[in-house]
Simulated scan of single mutants.
Amino acid sequence: MTFSDVVEVIKSLSTDEKREIQLLLQQYLREERRDDIYANFKSSQIEQQKGELKFSANTNELKQLIEE
């Protein structure tokens, strides 16, 4: 089934069914974002354990770190 097939099927659904799909999609997107945030957190933890993270309160130094 192609994306356009899915779109056509959704168009044929009732309003209540479309709302349910909307709610499901919002939930799926939230879950995916949560997974991304967690993966980034775990990656940052590993970098910190390896001593690869750099911290600074100096804004000029922070700008340089971002550019690296």
Rank of each mutant, 00 (worst) to 15 (best):
T2C: 04
F3Q: 03
F3R: 06
F3N: 01
S4P: 01
D5R: 06
D5I: 09
V6G: 02
V6C: 04
V7F: 01
E8F: 10
V9C: 08
I10C: 03
I10E: 02
K11D: 11
S12N: 13
S12W: 09
K18A: 10
K18V: 11
R19P: 01
R19G: 04
R19N: 08
E20L: 07
I21L: 13
Q22D: 01
Q22T: 06
L25A: 14
Y28M: 03
L29S: 05
L29K: 08
R30K: 11
E31T: 10
E32R: 11
R33F: 09
R33T: 15
D35E: 15
D36A: 08
I37Y: 14
I37P: 06
A39T: 05
N40K: 15
N40G: 07
F41L: 07
K42L: 15
K42M: 14
K42D: 10
S43W: 05
S43H: 02
S44E: 12
S44C: 03
E47R: 08
E47T: 04
E47M: 09
Q48N: 13
Q48S: 12
Q49M: 09
Q49Y: 04
Q49A: 09
K50E: 09
G51N: 01
E52H: 12
E52K: 11
L53K: 07
K54D: 04
F55A: 05
S56D: 07
S56E: 04
N58E: 11
N58K: 13
N60K: 11
E61M: 04
E61R: 12
E61Q: 14
L62R: 00
Q64T: 11
L65G: 01
L65M: 06
L65V: 02
E67N: 05
